[in-house]
Amino acid sequence: MKRSGPLLTLLGGLLLALFMLSLNATTGTGSSSYGGDAPDAATPTPSPTRSSPEPSPEPTESEKPDEKPPPDASYAGRTDDDASAISISVRDGKAIAYYCDGRDTESWLKGKVEDDGSMRLTGKHGAKLNGRIADEKVRGTVDIDKETSKFTAEKAEKPSGLYRATTEVRGAKLDGGWIVLPDGSQVGILNRDGEPGKAPRIDPGTGTVRVDGDDITARPVTP
């Protein structure tokens, strides 16, 4: 009977230990179903998603290279009906033109030349010239005295081209225009005090024109 004391003590300790284990198993240290003070279970951190590289933009139609203004040049030719001559001088994006039938009808026109070679020139009394430079020629139409004529003017090499003289001889005011065509032929009008008439022949090499026994000098026309 004396040995029963320690056994009871040992048995009591075992029962206490079992009770404590049972209590821990019941309460637990995990998350409470009521969301109490127990820390939440760790939420796994999502792995960073790799953004797909943005597709390269599709190549757009390349812009056209900047067009350069037409080079400086002179042009001379005739209307399609061969009734009149036309000469055009182009300098620094500007143009001056002369229309002449060699008798009594003429017109000076001027304006701007676009980078694509097109031009819209205007003169007195509603005169108009619409043309375009291409393949070393100017093709277009000219409206003079309400009549429209088509024309072609080829690039002119000196001494071909456009000439003009404005001076006074023996008290008369002279204003003349001359077109020297690539084949060497000439068309011009000389105004004496405002009265038009066929112009005397010009020496293209020197620009000299003989008028009433006196020499005057016509010079190449540039805008």
Rank of each mutant, 00 (worst) to 15 (best):
V221G: 12
A218F: 07
S52W: 11
P65Q: 00
R170E: 10
S118E: 01
L10C: 15
V138E: 09
G77Q: 06
F19K: 09
T43K: 15
S51W: 09
G131R: 09
I96S: 14
V138Q: 00
G171A: 04
L190I: 07
S149P: 10
P204R: 05
A38C: 03
G171L: 07
S4K: 14
D92S: 09
E157Q: 08
R103A: 03
S107L: 02
P39S: 11
K68F: 08
R219V: 15
P69R: 06
G35F: 11
S33Y: 11
V209N: 04
S84A: 09
H125N: 15
S56T: 14
L109A: 10
L129Y: 06
P71F: 00
G93D: 02
E61R: 15
E168A: 14
S89F: 12
G117S: 09
T208K: 10
I133Y: 10
M20R: 15
P204F: 03
L8Y: 14
S185R: 10
L18E: 00
V209H: 06
D37I: 12
L15T: 10
G131Y: 05
G36E: 07
G93I: 01
L10E: 13
G111E: 09
N191F: 15
V169W: 02
T26Q: 11
I96Y: 01
G188Q: 12
S149M: 08
V138C: 06
K112L: 11
P55Y: 10
R192I: 01
K110G: 14
S160E: 09
A218Q: 04
V187Y: 03
D115C: 00
D81P: 08
S87I: 10
L190S: 02
S118I: 08
F151M: 09
R170T: 03
D92L: 09
V169Y: 05
N130S: 14
W108G: 01
S74D: 03
K128S: 04
L162T: 01
K173L: 04
G93H: 02
L23C: 04
G176M: 05
A156G: 05
T60D: 14
D145G: 08
I96W: 02
E54D: 13
D104V: 08
I216R: 06
T217N: 11
L21S: 01
F19P: 00
S4N: 15
G77N: 00
V113F: 02
Y163N: 01
S4V: 15
